[in-house]
Design a protein around this nucleic acid. Structure first.
Lengths: 338, 338
DNA sequence: CTGAAAGCGCTTACAG
DNA sequence: CTGAAAGCGCTTACAG
């Protein structure tokens, strides 16, 4: 029932002009303290709030930022989103969420939609398809419209756009090195992302570590495919050969599939096989067995990306693209306690 | 660089008035087909898009809906959010996401913020604290401001607000009945939500089922607490007594904790203990062992809630609150295959 | 110190 | 069929 009061109505009630009311509420030094007080009192009484749409129109902005995540089942992105939301709210921005469902087409549809002026900036982790097609025209398009874009997590090499990610090569390098230091030499990996994007980077990190440590890079130890049944089959085969001593799951799905496959084969973690995976802090400790994981600090990633985007929106940054790399951390739970 | 073109600029280029351009683009029958075509061609050439902020100001709406989820780690809410996003986009609304972190205070802060006119409506699953305090003044407040509110998942009894939920009593009733029909009589439950809200409803459903089926309701079989270490302790004790034949986890966390505790005790699922839980379709099949679960159709819940909210916003609905109950489904995986 | 005016980018009743 | 005017709810340079 109680409908929102406007500046005009307040002005009428106070017998002053709309300008005076507006200035008073914005603490303009132009207005006498007495008037300011009168205005503020009445405003408070009526619980006046400026209409954000009108303010935004005037200020030529929207007060919104968009975030596009490729999927939402993966708790990693949910966590990032949480970080973005917290930070954006602090900075006075609303977060409009979109889910691309790993589809380039949908991603284009969404960027097209927001290029109309729905948001002041975009945070995006590009879809698998986008990476595969290597098609980023839609992002460049937004930049041409002067809508800042910040990439997170799934970073893209050789592109002139702000990014916030983790050092994926290093993260797995560390994992391999840890296992090596504990005298584990036959280390396999499982990747359901295929060999593009993050999957590719992580695989490279693995290979680099093996090379540096003098471990043979045996193709047999690498289960890499985007086809889930194929991943399962290869994994089973690998386990039945009883050679591999440790497995690293390179993504959420692979990690769970690997833990499951090991146990299905009647093998024990960590006694028979050690495991390290990419799962998050909420779920890793309550699985059985609990899984050691690479902490990618998703909340912090979201916060950092949001902060950077807002700085771009405000034009506070030099125009050269900024690349932020967060340090990952290997967290040890039961699967590497041996 | 390429800055957005406005109606005014188009009008100038075409040597017609702003009104004519606006009407042409909106296919007004007032304008001659020839003019309409001229205008549209130029608009297309310049890739003209109406400024949504201006349109919204004029139409006295925002085009946004807010959704407040209590937490984001729980993949259930992530899925609901996915459903909301898809449906809202179809209906021409943007989804602004907020996370209350199970805090009433934060929830109030957020509702206060959006009451300023940031959104046209709100979807909310209230926080645990809100349920415990039984304080819904902030929601009624929004309704007074004529901002429609739709509750989802965590529904509240005796409140005059639209809701979309599942029949929590029935869902667990079905689970108990299924186990009973397979000759399992000693059925325990584990709940980390405590005995408020959904936890309470599910516990009631359990008790009702036991009563109807003539099973004794033994307090010992009910592990209920909001304190995680306490849940773990009680669970361990219960398992060591080796009486219980099946356990039902009433929420995501309890379900994983239960599966883990059973295995830690060296017991096998389903051979020694059967299990049913509240986890989602993505994760249930890749756990080891895979867990039978109550499918609450989170996507559908999000879609239904969004549709209802948009109808309220458009004023297409009679004003009596609508209560939609989705049917849950018991999905059988390894933990009940016996 | 206060207010009239212009304007943000649109839409739409009204006049011609 | 076209356009001038008013208005959505604000802000702000400018005049008094």
């Amino acid at each position: 029932m109680r409908s929102k009061i406007t500046l005009k109505e307040l002005a009428k009630l106070l017998n002053v002009s709309v300008s005076t009311v507006s200035k008073s509420l914005n603490d303009s030094p132009e207005i006498s303290p007495k008037t300011v007080q009168r205005v503020k009192e009445l405003a408070q009484l009526h619980n006046y709030r400026p209409n954000p749409t009108a303010v935004n129109l005037k200020r030529n902005r929207t007060g919104n930022i968009a975030v596009i995540v490729p999927n939402i089942s993966n708790t990693f992105f949910a966590k990032v989103l949480g970080g973005v939301e917290t930070e954006a709210r602090k900075l006075g921005f609303q977060v409009i969420t979109y889910i691309s469902n790993e589809s380039l087409k949908l991603e284009k549809q969404i960027t097209e939609l927001i290029s109309n002026g729905l948001v002041d900036g975009l945070l995006i982790s590009v879809s698998e398809e986008t990476q595969k097609m290597n098609d980023y025209a839609h992002l460049h398009n937004l930049l041409e419209y002067e809508i800042p874009v910040v990439l997170f997590d799934r970073i893209i090499p050789n592109i002139e756009i702000d990014m916030v990610g983790v050092n994926d090569k290093d993260s797995i390098y560390d994992a391999v090195q840890f296992l090596y230091s504990r005298n584990i030499k036959k280390i396999g990996l499982v990747c359901a992302l295929g060999d593009i994007g993050l999957g590719q980077l992580r695989i490279e990190g693995y290979k680099k570590a093996c090379k540096d440590l003098g471990l043979p890079v045996d193709e047999k130890f690498a289960v890499v495919s985007r086809d889930i049944p194929e991943v399962k089959d290869k994994l089973k085969q690998l386990l039945q050969e009883k050679e591999v001593e440790a497995l690293i799951g390179l993504d959420f799905l692979s990690t769970l599939l690997t833990s499951r496959a090991i146990q299905e084969e009647g093998l024990k973690i960590p006694e028979d096989i050690k495991m390290i995976g990419y799962v998050n802090e909420d779920i890793a400790p309550i699985l059985y067995p609990s899984l050691s994981y690479v902490d990618q600090h998703p909340r912090q990633m979201g916060e950092t990306a949001a902060t950077l985007l807002v700085e771009r929106i405000k034009g506070n940054k030099p125009s050269t693209p900024s690349h932020t790399t967060l340090k990952t951390e290997l967290k040890h739970l039961d699967s590497t306690r041996f």
